[in-house]
Design a protein around this nucleic acid. Structure first.
Length: 572
RNA sequence: CGGGGUGUGGCUCAGGUGGCAGAGCGCCUGCUUCGGGAGCAGGAGGUCAGGGGUUCAAGUCCCCUCACCCCGACCA
């Protein structure tokens, strides 16, 4: 491809609307163009990268036995009503009506559609298992789109769905998909972590996420450097500690004005926050009060709360509601003399504490040196504590590391969540009608593009790994008005193309610095510079990843380059 | 959803207290230049996000709307 005729336009200015490196560099490098919040167009080079990522994914999916389909973007509401998700999915669902008033959504994920497809053909266990996948545009009206392609409202996803006759068979499908994912990310050269993930309210059996560790992700990931355990923070179980060995001091009732936060209370009483029991009031379905007691230095993880309550329809009580329900003020809530309607849960972190500070629903007062059994009794224990760095690994007990992660892939053993309500049944060998056991498996293709830039860039620009680079080689003619350079560059270009090297030939009539800067920005793994040294029969090869340069004989340059690229395509 | 910020040429931005619409980059023309975002000269390019108001006069002051970016997801 000759750059002088290629629709690729980079910018010298830093894009003002971008924050994340990947967002900045993809915009500046002319790979994407924003249309609206969370909606981006891909330019020719941007699409080339995306297609390469798709190619890797497609190849591994096919190899795993999955079969590609193309479902529709526009989906009738009826299917979504069968599973109840028309309501459950909420405002994130893009919906519209046709001219006759029939309702549709733009697919955010397509369990309903694919289940409908399968149920219309599958009758017998003999037709199972089957795994279908597609690479398709998806729509989610995100509350807050951000960071370019990382969280978009329109994005490209690979979604796969497995259909098996029974649980055991479904687990085999699940495991084989897990291996396929590991191969995919390895081939994309993305350093991902496979973490245990939440099965959520859907009631699945198993779930794993593939995340890259980066500040520009929305997930919190805990991992153990000792034994290799890794989990999404919301699924990492935190156990009870042993009882503190401490002499029980006499209980006191102290006036504690203006201490409506743990921090204020801690400094007022000169007591560490871990010796305070915090009470957090939630309302389920907008009315049912649930009180969580947790150690003062820890926070409630609402994802864990969701698991405990079995619903996501809950929220913190407002100040006014605290007053009405508990006749006290925020900051002075405690487990004493509560109305019977209040359900109380003790987080594991509160177990075994001695001589704690705890409120008793009287504004501006706290108990000091309260002790379990003597002054209060525990109730039901749960784990709703947000995991923090240093918490014990659930497998080996070593201190955990916690990091922000970006979820690139998610695999999910669904069970019969969709097949049952949608009546996707088959006949087993005994002639019994049974629901198909399903799994679903996503990869954010466009998100991978951002993740690659996050992992491969420097101050100057992107450093695409060879398997996903828009072009493997950038052939630069330094001075296009020098006939000799021009002639050599033209020749090398044709030769490189001939040899099957994906080449962009920078034949633009621009200054050398301009072309070098673009080369760095756009991230080609290899660069061949045709400049002054042609007089000595040499051209210069530059490696973007290693930063190395070497002079090659003009006649042998493409051959040597070909060998390098060939090797680079293969590994690992 | 809540909070904050921004909106002026294609891009990045400047335009105290109201008084002729600006710069750099990019673009076009010409000449020069050619190994790290070149130089000189000339030129084109604007509904100052949109609407309403105050005023002799609004990019600037007031109100409303919209768009985009960022932060937080309410921790008692």
């Amino acid at each position: 491809m000759r750059w002088s005729r290629y629709f690729w336009h980079t910018s010298k200015e830093e894009p003002s609307d971008a924050e994340a490196p990947s967002h900045k560099l993809l915009l500046k490098g002319g790979f994407i163009k924003q249309v609206s919040a969370g909606i981006y167009e891909l330019t020719p080079p941007g699409l080339r990268v995306l297609r390469k990522i798709e190619g890797v994914v497609r190849k591994e999916m096919d190899r795993s036995g999955a079969q590609e389909v193309l479902l529709t973007v526009l989906n009738p509401a009826e299917l979504w009503k069968e599973t109840g998700r028309w309501e459950l999915y909420g405002r994130e669902l893009f919906t519209l009506k046709d001219r006759n008033g029939r309702e549709y959504c733009l697919g955010p994920t397509q369990e309903e559609e694919v289940t409908d497809l399968v149920r219309s053909f599958v009758r017998s266990y003999r037709q199972l298992p089957v795994v279908l996948y597609q690479i398709q545009v998806k729509f989610r009206d995100e509350k807050r789109p951000r960071f370019g392609l990382i969280r978009g409202r329109e994005f490209i996803m690979k979604d796969a769905y497995s259909f098996d006759a029974d649980q055991f068979s479904a687990m085999i499908s699940y495991e084989s998909m897990k291996f396929a994912y590991e191969r995919i990310f390895k081939k994309l050269r993305l350093k991902t972590l496979m973490v245990e993930a939440s099965v959520g309210t859907i009631g699945g059996i198993s779930s794993h996420e593939f995340v890259v560790l980066t500040d520009y992700g929305e997930a919190r990931v805990a991992y153990c450097e000792g034994c290799g355990y890794a989990g999404n923070a919301e699924v990492v179980k935190l156990p009870k500690n042993g009882e503190e060995e401490e002499e029980e001091k006499p209980l006191m009732e102290l006036e504690t004005p203006h201490t409506d936060t743990i921090e204020k209370l801690s400094s007022f009483l000169r007591v560490p926050s871990r010796k305070i029991i915090k009470s957090v009031l939630y309302l389920v379905d907008g009315s049912k009060p649930i009180l969580f007691l947790i150690r003062g230095d820890r926070n409630v993880d609402e994802n864990k709360v969701e698991a405990v309550l079995g619903t996501e329809n809950f929220r913190l009580a407002e100040d006014k509601e605290v007053r009405e329900l508990l006749k006290t003020e925020k900051g002075f809530i405690g487990p004493f003399n509560l109305p019977p309607s209040v359900r109380v849960y003790w987080d594991n972190s509160t177990y075994g504490l001695k001589n704690v500070v705890i409120a008793f629903n009287r504004p501006n007062y706290h108990y000091v040196n309260a002790n379990p059994r003597r002054d209060f009794s525990y109730g039901e224990f749960v784990d709703v504590c947000e995991v923090e760095e240093g918490d014990p690994c659930p497998k080996c007990g070593a201190p955990l590391r916690v990091s922000k992660g970006l979820e690139l892939g998610h695999i999910f053993l669904l069970g019969t969540r969709y097949s049952e309500p949608m009546k996707a049944f088959y006949r087993d060998p005994q002639g019994q009608e049974k629901p198909i056991v399903m799994g679903c498996y996503g990869i954010g293709i466009s998100r991978c593009m951002s993740a690659l830039v996050e992992q491969y860039h420097d101050e100057k620009g992107i450093k695409w790994p060879t398997p996903v680079a828009p072009f493997e080689l950038d052939l630069i003619c330094v001075n296009t008005s020098d006939p000799q350079q021009r002639e050599v560059a033209d020749k090398l270009y044709l030769l490189a193309e001939e040899m099957g090297i994906e080449t962009i030939y920078d034949d633009r009539d621009e200054s050398p610095g301009f072309k070098f800067a673009d080369a760095d920005l756009c991230g080609f793994p290899y660069r061949l510079v045709v400049g002054k040294k042609v007089k000595e029969g040499k051209v210069e090869l530059q490696d973007r990843h290693r930063g190395e340069r070497q002079d090659l004989d003009i006649d042998r340059a493409v051959d040597e380059l070909k060998a390098l690229i060939e090797k680079d395509r293969q590994t690992p």
